[in-house]
Design a protein around this nucleic acid. Structure first.
Lengths: 97, 97
DNA sequence: CTTGTCTTGACAAATATTGGCTAATATAAT
DNA sequence: ATTATATTAGCCAATATTTGTCAAGACAAG
């Protein structure tokens, strides 16, 4: 199953032997913030995702899609009629909105 | 296509010849707020949807589903990879999250 | 022109979000 | 065990967003 964006970022970072503080300085935020982002404790801003893709040499589109999926999940988690609503939205956007 | 929640509410209200201020008082908000809710200019709170279903003798589940679809739309509108993200989320929730 | 309904915009108060700091906790090496 | 480095947790202040209230405007009916 598709991971959450935070998991993906941590995976990319550790595979390249980068430290939190190294990524943090490039992203210009405190180390603790990145740590929280990776663990899903803090939301990640869209522009930050793009920057992270560059820092980590990752596919920007892939990360942005994960990011968006996280946003959607935030909205529908714990919702009883999530499936119905998703279906309806899917239809709607296929028609060019 | 499924209407937005606001449209549906206005439809229900006018068909029953109810005035904004009548619904407003039952919902305990200012008239202007309802007006904006119906036109999608102000977000509607989840609890308010349930109350509105009672006031308007509508199906609570239907309204809540419309409400949720609106929430999702807010997130994905203007997003390039909306379809991809939606697909992934749909899969994820089918597996019981 | 008066009345009633609905809409709109401006404003302030309340709430939420954000990031930084610092201290605490791991983890690893010697 | 001590040192060095990495990560995480908690709290605070600044900022942004949301919220409701109010007054004024638009519009139609009589």
């Amino acid at each position: 199953m598709a991971p959450q964006l935070g998991d993906k970022i941590r995976e990319l970072r550790t595979k390249q032997n980068l430290l939190l503080r190294q990524v943090a300085s490039k992203l210009d935020v405190d180390t603790s913030i990145i740590s929280k982002m990776e663990r899903g404790e803090r939301p990640i801003k869209k522009e930050q995702v793009a920057t992270l893709a560059e820092i980590l040499n990752a596919d920007k589109q892939e990360l942005l899609t994960l990011w968006l999926a996280d946003q959607v999940m935030d909205v529908i988690k714990d919702e009883q009629f999530a499936d119905e609503a998703l279906k309806s939205v899917t239809k709607k956007i296929k028609k060019g909105k």
